[in-house]
């Protein structure tokens, strides 16, 4: 049982936080811009390497350098939207999907050009000892930080979306873009904020993954499928649903490799990443609007 909590439950919550942060962005972009953003994983990678670059100059904990990664991701997202996505907005959205597919490639090759394709380990001042609670629970400090940060972000995001003018405008556009236009809402401003939030959260998520393991150019791409699954699970256009979806996918992935019956892992750990996909497929068959009644696009 203790082994279960230490080696499965806490890591599951940590990776769940990463998926949650990524899925929020995907869900919001899907809801407001109406397309599946295939470059979101690689946007995550870009943000991660932004922190990495800053860490080479400033010797403090990478977590404190997160704003650099967020800034880089925001700039790249806004740039790409302005140059590549915006001109395609009048066309069927599938063209934007194809474009984002190409943008994923552009992001990745840029990262590889500047930083190479090898693994990069963050120099965060040696291995930190895990937190030990009651002499039994051993939790990585980073995992705790990830979960706490995600919880704070979730609360802040909820208040932003329900109380502020920009947040309400975002929900309005996500609800009905035509009516939002008729109401005179500034749709382009809403789009900009969508990218700003999506990109910042992606950068933070990428940073946690990179600090937990290492940074490499495929970091974000490898996370794309579980993040999509989480976004669909939570219901498109439901940011809090996407958060919950992230944790569900994270838990499902980790717990599927626990030896529930006998000594054998339920599903071989090498197929862990397939779990998210299978959940996504099952959901598309049974309940495509997601668990929390999102929109069906």
């Amino acid at each position: 049982m203790i082994e279960f909590i230490n080696f499965y439950l806490f890591p599951a919550l940590a990776i769940g936080s990463v998926y949650a942060l990524g899925a929020v962005g995907i869900s919001m972009i899907f809801g407001i811009l109406r397309f599946a953003h295939f470059a979101h994983g690689d946007l995550m990678t870009v943000g991660t390497y932004g922190v990495f670059a800053a860490a080479g100059v400033i010797a403090v904990s990478p977590l404190l350098l997160a704003p650099f990664g967020m800034a880089l991701a925001i700039v790249m997202a806004l740039l790409v939207d302005r140059v590549f996505y915006q001109p395609l907005r009048k066309l069927p959205t599938i063209y934007t999907v194809i474009s984002s597919f190409g943008v994923a490639l552009i992001f990745r090759s840029l990262v590889q050009m500047f930083w190479g394709s090898q693994n990069q380990v963050f120099n965060s001042g040696g291995v930190r000892p895990p937190l030990v609670l009651f002499d039994t629970f051993r939790i990585s400090v980073l995992h705790v930080q990830a979960v706490l940060a995600t919880a704070c972000i979730a609360v802040a995001l909820h208040f932003f979306l329900s109380r502020t003018r920009t947040g309400r405008s975002m929900r309005a556009v996500s609800d009905d873009p035509e009516l939002a236009e008729v109401s005179g809402l500034d749709t382009e401003k809403v789009v900009r904020w969508t990218w700003i939030i999506g990109a910042s959260l992606a950068a933070i998520a990428g940073l946690f993954v990179a600090m937990d393991t290492s940074a490499h150019p495929n970091l974000g791409w490898n996370l794309l499928m579980p993040m999509f699954a989480a976004a669909i699970l939570g219901g498109i256009g439901k940011p809090m649903g996407a958060m919950a979806g992230g944790y569900i996918i994270g838990l499902a992935e980790e717990l599927s490799s626990y030896h529930w019956i006998g000594d054998q892992a339920l599903i071989s750990p090498s197929y862990k990443t397939a779990v998210a996909f299978i959940i996504m497929i099952a959901l598309l068959i049974v309940r495509p609007q997601g668990l929390f009644k999102g929109r069906l696009l």
Partner: peptide, 23 residues
């Protein structure tokens, strides 16, 4: 507009509030 003229997922209060944003 004729149909689909409210933001369905926004509360009534939020719908009214959104009406003030442009002017």
């Amino acid at each position: 507009p004729q149909s689909r003229n409210v933001f369905r997922n926004l509360t009534v209060e939020e719908n009214l509030d959104v009406g003030t944003y442009a002017a």
